[in-house]
Amino acid sequence: MFDEPTIAWLGEEDPIFGINRIMLIRLISATAIILIFVLGTRRMRLVPTRGQSLVEMGLGFVRDGIAYDLLGEKDGRRFLPLITTIFFMVLSMNVTGIIPFFNIAGTSVIGVPLLLALIAYVAFIYAGVKKHPGAFFKNALFPPGVPWPLYIIVTPIEFVSTFVLRPITLTLRLMMNMVVGHLLLVLFFSATHFFFFSAGGLYTLFGAGTLALGFAFTLFELLVAVLQAYVFALLTTVYIQLALAEEH
């Protein structure tokens, strides 16, 4: 399903560079979100236009609802560019799953979710080391107040949960949600095509049902696209907040 044919390349007989459909969708998504922000902020006005208002609303949501709310104004301002980029990048690539002729999310293949999870992981490590040099890893692996014999059990658990599972869960949560949504839409609309054009007769009624479910799940998939962007940005911020916590 995700093994897309190469649709553009350099080198005629022995291609050295190729772009398949999922990569093209990602490039279009990134270009679209950049253009939206460039055009929306190119001529800022005291009385904003509709485009400027939408851009300001989106930026304000990430700033006040995620970054400043969890990190405070000082640290929130430091990490706001990263959190904003992650939110809108995930959102733009999630939404392509319900856009006609795209029909697949740019985050439904592991590359982008893994890259963003690694960036969030690096930001988490950077924030902790910057705020608590020399003590971040020690306090993360050897939590204060634990009787020393228990470190034999606690330290491996802390290492796996803090430094291994976090990027893995970030990656899989985003990717699998978008894959499942894609499969559900494929299932409903494929069934609709079958009932309408192949089965015929009374089976057309089933086609009407699967078509209605397909549209309903398309709206639900839009909600999931926004929610997953929010969750990814929120968890990134939470990890940074934990790294900056005083107990580290």
Rank of each mutant, 00 (worst) to 15 (best):
F2W: 13
P5Q: 00
E12P: 02
D14S: 12
I22A: 12
L24A: 09
I25P: 12
I25K: 01
S29G: 14
T31G: 15
A32C: 05
I33V: 14
I34H: 07
V38C: 12
T41H: 10
M44T: 09
R45V: 07
L46V: 13
V47T: 12
P48A: 00
T49G: 14
Q52T: 07
E56L: 15
D64S: 13
G72N: 02
K74I: 12
T84N: 06
V90F: 02
V90G: 07
T96C: 09
I98W: 06
I98G: 04
I99M: 02
P100C: 03
F102N: 03
A105T: 10
G111W: 05
Y121G: 04
V129H: 07
V129A: 01
P133L: 01
A135Q: 15
P149H: 01
P149N: 04
P149A: 03
L150E: 10
I153H: 03
I157S: 05
E158D: 08
V160K: 00
P167D: 02
I168S: 06
R173G: 07
L174I: 08
M175I: 01
N177P: 06
L184C: 09
L184M: 14
L187C: 10
F188C: 15
F188M: 14
A191Y: 02
S198R: 05
G200E: 02
L205I: 13
G207M: 01
A208W: 12
T210L: 00
G214S: 05
A216N: 15
E221S: 15
L222K: 10
A229I: 13
A229P: 14
A229G: 14
Y230N: 10
V231E: 10
F232L: 05
F232D: 06
L234Q: 03
T236N: 09
Y239V: 00
I240H: 07
I240S: 09
L242Y: 14
L244V: 09
E247L: 10
